[in-house]
């Protein structure tokens, strides 16, 4: 009779997931955002319209350009390389070169969680991908410059959501995502507004989070910050017992409410249908 907590949670999770799916309807589902595949061929029109469009190839690809010069000792592509033509360009690139123009971003990336995970070589649980390097998030050849807050924010939902789909989905069902990403309100919070740009933080401690919330919610305190923005069990560790407990409560309540909603609405719709039929029949019989 009594369902185990696990089953109940799963049922609640399914209901929530269905709701989320309904809401998302073709949103941040793709694992690789469009254009992130590393093709041999450069779309020159988009490249020139992008942020780096004025840079000559050699400014970022000096090694390759040198290899093409007469009398060069190296080659491009390098046939002597044992991984010849098999190195993924996106992760093979020497991103230290980016700091020639993006010094502070590069430095702060190295202070953050992504750099830490990259060093350890850990993979995300959700998509099994490695921690991102510059090119994983930034479409270096094509990303346009001077986007406004909403355009940037919508990009973040897609790009961050590629490796953290559960977080993106829950963000989009949260008021922040509904107002910001979906309705395009530039005062709503997007990914990097809370988690920071480049120096990404996971915000697991309410004390740290309260300071982040304070940016828009001046009355914020650690208790306020314990609000669950991403109601998902994905990526929770043993240390996140408090959030896990909150989530079980949230799932249980939503399951009960879901069943209640179906029952109540179902009863009234059925009853009204029956009632209408009877009255129509009554009317017809009279005539």
């Amino acid at each position: 009779m009594a369902l185990s907590t696990k089953h109940r949670c799963r049922a609640a999770g399914i209901i929530l997931a269905l709701l989320a799916a309904l809401v998302l309807a073709g949103g941040a589902g793709a694992s690789v955002p469009p254009g992130m595949e590393s093709s041999w061929y450069l779309d020159l029109g988009r490249y020139q319209a992008g942020a780096h469009g004025k840079l000559a190839c050699a400014e970022c690809h000096a090694k390759q350009e040198l290899a093409l010069k007469p009398g060069s000792k190296t080659a491009h592509p390098d046939t002597k390389d044992p991984k010849y033509l098999m190195t993924p360009a996106l992760r093979g690139y020497d991103y230290a070169q980016c700091q020639r123009c993006h010094k502070s971003a590069y430095a702060r990336y190295h202070l953050g969680k992504h750099a830490e995970a990259l060093k350890k070589g850990t993979k995300t649980k959700q998509t099994g991908s490695l921690s991102p390097v510059c090119g994983d998030c930034h479409q270096v050849h094509y990303d346009p410059a001077r986007l406004d807050r909403v355009e940037l924010g919508r990009r973040q939902t897609l790009v961050c959501g590629a490796c953290h789909p559960a977080q993106a989905a829950t963000y989009l069902t949260d008021y922040h995502g509904q107002a910001g990403d979906k309705l395009g309100w530039d005062k709503a919070a997007f990914c990097s507004d809370c988690h920071g740009a480049h120096e990404v933080k996971s915000l697991k401690s309410p004390e740290l989070t309260a300071g982040v919330c304070w940016r828009c919610h001046p009355g914020s305190n650690p208790r306020f910050a314990a609000y669950v923005v991403h109601p998902t069990l994905v990526d929770l560790t043993k240390e996140d017992a408090a959030k896990r407990r909150s989530l079980y409560l949230i799932y249980t309540v939503s399951a009960i409410l879901g069943v209640l909603a179906v029952c109540v609405v179902g009863f009234f719709y059925g009853h009204t249908f029956l009632w209408m039929l009877r009255e129509i029949q009554h009317k017809l019989r009279k005539h």
Partner: peptide, 17 residues
């Protein structure tokens, strides 16, 4: 361009920079 590149002030990175 470390100094003379105007960052995108709409982005958090731009604000920090």
């Amino acid at each position: 361009l470390d100094c003379h590149h105007l960052p995108n002030l709409a982005s958090n990175e731009g604000v920090v920079a």
